[in-house]
Design a protein around this nucleic acid. Sequence first.
DNA 1: CCGTTTTGGGTAAGCGCTTTCCAAGGAGGC
DNA 2: GCCTCCTTGGAAAGCGCTTACCCAAAACGG
Lengths: 342, 342
Amino acid sequence: MPQRAAGSVTLADVAREAGVSLATASRALNGGTRQVRGDLLETVLKVAERLRYTANGPAQAMARGRSNVVGLLVHDIVDPYFCSIASGVMRVAARHRLTVTIASTENQPEKEVEYVATLRGQRASAVILAGSRIEHRTLQRRLTVELTAFEAAGGRAVVIGQNRLPFDTVQLGNRPGAADLAARLTGLGHRSFLVLAGPPALLTSRDRLRGFQDGLGRDGVALTAGRIVHTEFTRDGGYDAMARALDGGFRDGCVFAVNDVMAVGAIAACRDRGLRVPADVAVAGFDDIVTLRDIRPSLTTVRVPIETMGEHALDFVLSERAGSPRVKHVTGEVVLRESTRL
Amino acid sequence: MPQRAAGSVTLADVAREAGVSLATASRALNGGTRQVRGDLLETVLKVAERLRYTANGPAQAMARGRSNVVGLLVHDIVDPYFCSIASGVMRVAARHRLTVTIASTENQPEKEVEYVATLRGQRASAVILAGSRIEHRTLQRRLTVELTAFEAAGGRAVVIGQNRLPFDTVQLGNRPGAADLAARLTGLGHRSFLVLAGPPALLTSRDRLRGFQDGLGRDGVALTAGRIVHTEFTRDGGYDAMARALDGGFRDGCVFAVNDVMAVGAIAACRDRGLRVPADVAVAGFDDIVTLRDIRPSLTTVRVPIETMGEHALDFVLSERAGSPRVKHVTGEVVLRESTRL
DNA sequence: CCGTTTTGGGTAAGCGCTTTCCAAGGAGGC
DNA sequence: GCCTCCTTGGAAAGCGCTTACCCAAAACGG
């Protein structure tokens, strides 16, 4: 048996000191609906305060069969997109005395399954998947199984991004957002396009690419296969892909990088090759990352209410479970800036 | 009593199915030093696998008197500086099967005390304070009391930043770093300086300011009080302070913003007033935030191994407690780039 | 070949809470 | 004034694990 940790005050101490039973002390401090007589309540609270009592989280979690932990799964914690989601989640969580634990898959989607299992073990009250879904049947099926087990064990699962899993989802309108962007760019007079897309399996990237094609198609502009470059979903991915395209002879067109950090990489690649943006090459991104608003030329992009998405996700967690999975739609808004001026 | 959560497999289930006692099952799956006979071990592992058993975290934590949670306290999770620290901490944590919970004080240092208390309640194995210490006797005393209680309860406390609290500390050489920067800037020929400092109480800001003054002093350059502007430790703070300085007539000098995001704000303010950097105003920052490396003009700054600091912090957590607080020194390195070219 | 260690399985006592169940007392209703 | 209903305190049964302790059997030493 572990020795009693020194200096740790238990509920029993408070109860004894206050001259009430354990049950009463519990009800006074962390209880639910049951009433406690006014004077007793006050005494207990006062004693707890005096002894600097803090409830033992694990013990509460065990007795209740549920902890107050919300797990947030991201692909990369340094990516400002995920930071913003985390910020939204944490702000709402703090208001409801929930603890947020963050785990990063480091861009290995198979780790999601593993982390959900861990969170199930922790009896977490919810798990929020913030990373893009991917096109991978086996993996997504295993994830569904694990998430179902998680919900069966009493937790809540919420997905941010694509509505591909049978759980409450905060869905971002990637496709319409990208279509709008395409329309605005053709409206500006652009006719020759290049898309820097992420890994082919990444749904966020696919949707943005497809939406962009939708938008171009409506204006009768075609995007040939050669004008789609797949790369990493990162700044360096954007840089490399842009560099390759330029070395392959691409000039005088408009580049759509499927996210802002890739767009920043693309601009850097252009600059390193002596090309001016937007004079020689126009560049647009997606997300409107706040940290990147000071990039010059300022980036044409699609503004996404990222923090709000995190807040919505936690709202799902806090609300009653619905009969069937709910979807909260969130839309982006095109912001034209210098990087695509013609 | 909470009803038994459906679909949740307990260690007892595994033991029964494997035909061994609870103790043996426990020792086979999560046990410490005690040996389990080979065949039994194998059976237990196989059964656990088949039943998809996951240990109940809270129960383990309660039985052991300690959870495997590490709490990370930051001032603002969207700030890339803290993201990088979190990244370093999480990378090491994942290797040691530790769970990281992040809490943001939202720049209200008094919340630190509160969060440490919560973590004590969670029986967290460690708490890492990542935000800058502040000059505030009462608050720091209360924090020390709380952290001492935390360690008395068996946890580990680690501080990143200034060595002001009697706990293991990863100390960043802000003062020498800023002094080096000052030396290099005077070396470049700069003679007229302006410092955009953070809130007066923030030690990170104070140390960088003081170090900068040290460095200037060695080269016989003085910094008058009028040339120090206090502002928020953020991008917008940098913008506002720079704008005020320019409106107050500041021209033709070198601006040291005590961190990179403030420097970015300062550059934006210059641009908005039609001033060129570095031709009209030179600007330097501190931190070398990766996300900001694509800002043009590229930023002269002091490179800080931020992720490494997070890693060191967790190394402290993982190592044995020493007799007296240990300090790991980390230094910055000046990187001259375009923004201060003369 | 017997006494002494060592090895390793099992039993059961907690860890610090929550919550069910029971009982006692008070408030109303007739 | 008796019965019922409501309120609220307390006793105690867990929640799912870890581990101290016990004990049988194997290993070892002389």
